[in-house]
């Protein structure tokens, strides 16, 4: 089986600053990989390279057997690689169901002329997209609020909704950037269950950035640790927990 995502020797330099160097990653279908590291380690840069917002200085990215290095972000998204941002990018003036339907925009076959003429095929498509979005909302338990403007929802729901919106685009690979950042314990548990559901029920491959150790250690069977742009450890949670360089990166070196 070919891996769904393969990043080879990714290096990103901003002028003289090397943000990420020689990053390698191979993900099989259905895997859940955690990417951790201290602040400024280059995790988000890795995400930005994978989904096309940055073009890596060196290296290439293979998604689904195709080289996507340097492709525009919307094209990469069209191929089924969807990213959820760290700092919340819901369309706050649109309601829940509209947010969901936007993520299906790229799956529309009708062109704008058909949309203006409201041809039967367009109407069927619109109805199908609406039904699918509602069904998904129902499945994750957010159906009651489908007409609420997303800006007015509690923060925890907003984060969940953002992941749900990405899910609505039928991704084959989901990049989650700190999904539990800013959530309280209860919301965090809810989000963890949701990520589990994504993987087990929806069968989605997930690459996860996370700061909260509890979340990463309990969710991810495989963890990659980077620090100052260098990959310092790869392994299962137990290996990571006891890895000397990881402890050093997070807690600093013991002088004695």
């Amino acid at each position: 089986m070919t891996p769904i995502l393969e990043a080879k020797n990714l290096t990103m330099r901003f002028g003289g600053l090397t943000s990420v160097s020689d990053f390698n990653l191979t993900m099989e279908k259905g895997e859940l990989v955690g990417l951790i590291g201290p602040n400024g380690a280059g995790k988000s840069t890795v995400f930005n390279m994978i989904c096309g917002f940055y073009k890596p200085t060196i290296g290439e990215i293979i998604f689904d057997g195709k080289n996507i290095t340097g492709m525009k972000p919307y094209r990469i998204a069209n191929m089924g690689l969807i990213r959820v941002f760290q700092n919340g990018r819901l369309f706050k003036n649109m309601n829940v169901i509209e947010n969901m339907m936007v993520s299906k925009h790229m799956r529309f076959n009708s062109n704008s002329l058909k949309a203006i003429l409201r041809t039967p095929s367009h109407n069927r498509e619109e109805q199908r997209v609406f039904d699918e979005s509602v069904a998904l909302l129902e499945r994750i338990g957010l159906k009651e609020m489908m007409y609420e403007p997303t800006g007015k929802l509690p923060f925890g729901i907003q984060r969940k909704l953002e992941v749900a919106r990405a899910l609505c685009a039928n991704p084959s690979l989901l990049l989650l950037d700190e999904p539990v950042a800013g959530l309280n314990v209860e919301e965090t548990n809810d989000m963890m269950n949701f990520v589990d559901q994504l993987r087990n029920e929806f069968g989605i491959t997930i690459l996860l950035i996370e700061h909260t150790m509890r979340v990463v250690m309990s969710l991810c069977p495989k963890i990659i640790v980077i620090d100052h742009g260098e990959t310092i450890a790869v392994g299962i949670p137990d290996e990571i927990r006891n890895n000397k360089s990881v402890i050093e990166a997070y807690l600093g070196v013991d002088e004695q």
Partner: peptide, 17 residues
């Protein structure tokens, strides 16, 4: 809807394809 999304958040819209 796509235009509204672009209006609110270009990067978010682009990331959704």
């Amino acid at each position: 809807r796509a235009l509204l999304a672009i209006n609110e958040d270009e990067i978010g819209a682009e990331a959704l394809g």
